[in-house]
C-alpha cells in the first residue's frame, strides 16, 4: 500500500471559464511538475475532453480519472467520475439530453473547445456549458450510480453553487461517496457547523481553471494501485484503504 497524491477537480479549455492554456498537454505537464499521481478531469457539464487527456498522459505514469462537474437544476455543483469510457459516454448522452439548449457566446463566456494532445481543436461545443441541467440533484445522483459512477458534491463550504448555498443544508437522504471542501475551510470548522457529517469522507482539490493552480490543493489516498476500485475503497475507508485527511 502506498500514498497517492491526487487533484481530482480540474477544468480544461472546454469549460468556458477554463484558461485557453488548459490543453491536455499543459494539464499533464503541470500535474507531473506538482508530483501528482492522479488527476480528475471535471469540466462543466461535459466529459468530451477526457479522452484527449488520457492520451496526453499515456506513458507518463499519471493516472486520469474521467469525470464531469455537473450543475444541477438547483445550481449545485457536483463531481461525478466514471471508470469506463462506455459509462462516461452513456452519461454524456444524459448530459446532452438535459442541458438547456442555450447558445454559447464566446465573447461573453469564453471558448468551449476540445483540444487534442497536439493542441489541435477537434470540437467546439455550441451550447453553453455553465447552465444548470433540467434535472434535480437527487435524480442526477441516481443517474450517476446507474452508470456505476462516484458522486461527490463539490466545494460544499462555498457561498455559491454549493449544496449549502443552494439548498441551505445537506439533504440527509442524498447518498454521496464523499464531500469536497475548498481550501478556505478547515474540516474541523466545517464540522463545527455540520456536526452530523462527522462520519463523512472529505476530499480537497484545486478546482483549477489555469495550469499554475493545478495541485495547489490535493488529497492523499492510501491505496494499492491508482485505480477506480481502490479509490472507491479509500473513500469508504475499507480494507486498509483510506483518505488521508488534509
Amino acid at each position: 500500500m502506498k500514498l497517492f497524491k491526487a487533484d481530482l477537480h480540474i477544468h480544461t479549455v472546454l469549460s468556458p471559464c477554463g484558461s485557453l492554456e488548459m490543453s491536455p498537454g499543459n494539464i499533464v505537464q503541470a500535474a507531473l511538475d506538482q508530483q501528482l499521481d492522479i488527476i480528475g478531469i471535471t469540466d462543466h457539464n461535459s466529459t468530451r475532453q477526457c479522452r484527449q487527456v488520457i492520451e496526453a498522459a499515456d506513458e507518463t505514469g499519471l493516472k486520469v480519472f474521467t469525470g464531469v462537474e455537473i450543475t444541477t437544476r438547483e445550481e449545485v455543483h457536483c463531481l461525478a467520475f466514471f471508470e469506463h469510457l462506455d459509462a462516461l459516454d452513456a452519461f454524456q448522452q444524459y448530459l446532452d439530453e438535459h442541458l438547456p439548449k442555450i447558445k454559447n457566446d464566446p465573447d461573453l463566456f469564453g471558448y468551449q473547445v476540445v483540444v487534442d494532445k497536439s493542441e489541435n481543436i477537434v470540437y467546439e461545443e455550441d451550447f453553453l456549458l455553465i447552465t444548470g441541467l433540467n434535472k434535480g440533484i437527487n435524480e442526477i445522483e441516481k443517474e450517476v450510480r446507474r452508470h456505476g459512477g462516484i458522486f461527490i458534491p463539490a466545494h460544499i463550504d462555498k457561498p455559491k453553487y454549493s449544496l449549502t448555498s443552494q439548498l441551505g443544508f445537506i439533504p440527509a437522504d442524498l447518498p454521496v461517496d464523499a464531500f469536497e471542501l475548498s481550501k478556505h475551510t478547515p474540516t474541523k470548522s466545517f464540522l463545527a457547523v455540520y456536526p452530523n457529517l462527522i462520519n463523512s469522507t472529505f476530499i480537497r482539490n484545486s478546482d483549477a481553471h489555469q495550469p499554475d493552480l493545478i495541485g495547489t490543493s490535493y488529497t492523499y489516498y492510501r491505496m494499492d494501485t491508482p485505480c477506480f476500485d481502490e479509490f472507491r475503497m479509500a473513500l469508504q475507508h475499507k480494507n486498509g484503504r483510506e483518505v488521508i485527511a488534509a
Binding site: 437544476r73 457561498p159 448555498s165 443552494q166 439548498l167 441551505g168 439533504p171
Partner: peptide, 22 residues
Amino acid sequence: LSDVMGHAKSGEAWITLQTHKN
C-alpha cells in the same frame, strides 16, 4: 435556500422556483 434560512421571517409566504424537498 441558505439565504431564506437566514432571512425569511415567521408567517411569510416564500416565492421561489426551487422544487427540492429541502
